[in-house]
Structures are given as structure tokens and as C-alpha cells.
């Protein structure tokens, strides 16, 4: 609990020094513009009507309800989300984004809403791709700008292929264009259902996911964090996690 208090205290310091009015006034007027890349089920994907569905949209809608604001969704590649946030094209990133020290230098993260781990996904013929060392000399598909790209770049001897969508990487592994891919466990489990030849062959590091706001939007961040705490206490966040992540 005192972590949230600390974050709130920091936010007050940031918002006081940056801008007295913050971003909430504009958002109340124009709505909350949220950027995401819906190729990442169950965090975000498109349903048969091309509507964005998943844990992130449900969570954002619940938060927006508490803030009393409209939500406008922007569907764009993951690697451009932080640039879009900084250049004020969007107000919030809700894209299953992992908290990293590098990203923290550019944006502010909300309280995390999911902890998971990054895994290796490969075809069923290759259970031996079970560790970072086993991927030496193998091609690894990752989505551009993701934490998994960073993990892959750190693997010795790996031939890292960056794609625009994890879904493209999954097809490329399925069709043997590449040997393996790195991805979040929850998403990997979804892909093994879509492509029955794919298996989770190894487990790498842990990750922690949060939403991100622009650094001068301290007022928005503190309102979202307060909403997340409320949703946690009321059990709504738990229900959403159960619904989408089965956790």
C-alpha cells in the first residue's frame, strides 16, 4: 500500500513542477485517447466486428467510468506507441506494456495490473529450444519495440527478426520461416490454440505490465492509479483477470 502512497507523492511533486493544470481538463472535454496494438490476445485483439476486445480495453473502460470520461481508441503499431504518447497523439498506452527502466525514462507507468513471464514459442518438433542458450544460432521472431525484442537481443548468437505484429511472428514460426519467437506466456498459450503445431518450449524472465501516461499528465496518472486501487479492492480487476487471463 505504501508503494501507491509513494507514487502519489512523487506524482504531486512532478505535476506541481511541470504544469499546474495537468491533462485532465482536456481529457474531460475531448475524451481519453488510448493507443493500443490489437494483435496481442487476450490483452487486446479484434473481434469479428473489428472492435478491440481484451483485458486492456475492459480495464480502460472501467477506469474511464470512474473518471467520468469518454474513451477514443487508436489502433497502431506497438513500436510507435511511446512516440505517439510523447507527441500527444494519445493520452494513454494500454497495450500489455512491460515496465522497463528505459521506458520509465520516457513515460510514467501506472500501477501494474499483471505479472507474467516471457517464454519461447517454437514448433512441436523442437522441444530442445528450451533456454536462451539453446537459441544460439537460431532465428528468433519478436515484435518491434517490445520487451521480448530486448530480451532476444541479449541472447548470445541469436538471429533476431523484428516483425510488426506478434501474430506475424506466430505465422512465421508455424510456417518454419523462423525457428522460434519470444512472447508473454498468456499470449503464447493463445497462439498454441490458434496454431496447434506451436508449443511453449522454454521459460525466460518475468515481466510486469502497466499502462503508460505522458510525464506532464501527473493528474491523469494519480486518478488512474486511484481507480486501479478501487477496482482491485472491489474485486472488479480480479474478475476481469479471471475472465481474460484465467488467473
Amino acid at each position: 500500500m505504501h508503494k501507491a502512497a509513494l507514487i502519489t507523492a512523487c506524482l504531486f511533486a512532478v505535476s506541481a513542477s511541470a504544469q499546474a493544470q495537468g491533462c485532465m481538463a482536456d481529457i474531460k472535454k475531448n475524451g481519453l485517447t488510448v493507443g493500443t496494438n490489437p494483435g496481442y490476445p487476450p490483452f487486446e485483439s479484434l473481434d469479428s466486428n473489428n472492435q478491440i476486445i481484451g483485458l486492456d480495453p475492459d480495464l480502460v473502460n472501467a477506469i474511464a467510468g470512474k473518471l467520468g470520461v469518454q474513451v477514443n481508441w487508436v489502433n497502431q503499431p506497438f513500436d510507435g506507441l511511446i512516440a505517439a504518447l510523447i507527441s500527444k497523439k494519445i493520452d494513454l498506452i494500454a497495450a500489455g506494456m512491460t515496465v522497463t527502466p528505459e521506458r520509465k525514462k520516457a513515460v510514467n507507468f501506472t500501477l501494474p495490473y499483471d505479472n507474467s513471464e516471457n517464454v519461447i514459442l517454437a514448433r512441436k518438433e523442437h522441444p530442445e529450444y528450451n533456454s536462451a542458450a539453446a537459441l544460439n544460432g537460431k532465428s528468433i521472431g519478436v515484435e518491434l519495440g517490445t520487451i521480448q525484442e530486448k530480451v532476444a537481443q541479449g541472447i548470445k548468437g541469436a538471429n533476431v527478426k523484428t516483425l510488426n505484429q506478434f501474430t506475424d511472428a506466430a505465422i512465421a514460426v508455424q510456417t518454419q520461416q523462423i525457428d522460434s519467437m519470444l512472447i508473454d506466456r498468456v499470449v503464447a498459450e493463445r497462439f498454441t490454440k490458434t496454431y496447434p503445431d506451436l508449443r511453449i518450449t522454454g521459460v525466460l524472465n518475468k515481466n510486469s505490465k502497466a499502462m503508460a501516461v505522458r510525464r506532464d499528465c501527473g493528474d491523469l496518472l494519480s486518478r488512474i492509479d486511484a481507480a486501479i486501487i478501487q477496482l482491485r479492492k472491489s474485486g472488479e480487476l480480479g474478475a476481469l483477470r479471471k475472465k481474460w487471463l484465467n488467473k
Binding site: 513500436d79 510507435g80 511511446i82 512516440a83 510523447i86 528505459e102 520516457a106 518491434l144 519495440g145 525484442e149 523484428t162
Partner: peptide, 8 residues
Amino acid sequence: QMITSRTY
């Protein structure tokens, strides 16, 4: 794109 994805 790759450089932008890490430097923003």
C-alpha cells in the same frame, strides 16, 4: 524504425 523504437 528499430532505432526509433528505443529512442522515441
